[in-house]
């Protein structure tokens, strides 16, 4: 009898494996940067290019770095979520304007609202590479010591915000 149950057993194991596979998103590649220090940079600010910003200035604060661009379509989906989050003043949001033209970026922010404490312009995408950016938008949560604690790939939605990001920020602020 057990001889005939073998194929059924193998089939069930396959079903479980494939079922788990369906719930995973192959586009979400785990970042090796989580748990490591946020790469240092010094970039001109989007609004005032004469002034620079560096992550070192954020030591002692929990903050979010959001990679965005005016040409990025899914950034539009994400944008209202960020605008709403910025109103709550729970966490400072800094923008990394990735491979964008300054005029387009500024127009985009006036059109859709500006949730960022400030944005920096990464015109040639060099800093994006340092942060392992491969699909805009991406969002990093960085702790008081300047360590990346979480990376969100793709648009941040209310669910990710409530389930993962906000609890993490509350935890890091303790």
């Amino acid at each position: 009898m057990s001889k005939y149950l073998w194929p059924l057993g193998i089939f069930l194991v396959l079903v479980v494996f494939l079922g788990v596979g369906l719930t995973l998103d192959p586009r979400e590649v785990p970042s090796p940067l989580v748990g490591k220090a946020a790469p240092a940079f010094e970039l001109p600010q989007l609004h005032e290019p004469a002034r620079k910003f560096s992550p070192a200035e954020m030591k002692g604060r929990v903050w979010m770095l959001n990679v965005w661009a005016s040409w990025c379509v899914s950034c539009r989906d994400e944008h209202p979520v960020l605008v709403e989050l910025s109103r709550t003043k729970v966490v400072p949001i800094y923008g990394l304007d990735y491979k964008d033209s300054r005029t387009d970026a500024l127009r985009w922010l006036t059109q859709f609202g500006d949730p960022y404490d400030l944005s920096v312009a990464d015109v040639d995408g060099r800093i994006g590479i340092e942060y392992g950016v491969y699909g805009v938008p991406e969002t990093y949560v960085i702790d008081k010591a300047g360590t990346i604690r979480y990376k969100h790939i793709g648009p941040v939605n209310q669910e990710a915000l409530k389930k993962t990001i906000l609890p993490l920020i509350a935890e890091l602020n303790k």
Partner: peptide
């Protein structure tokens, strides 16, 4: 590259 993008 793996430092930034992982083994993938």
């Amino acid at each position: 590259l793996t430092d930034r993008y992982g083994d993938f």
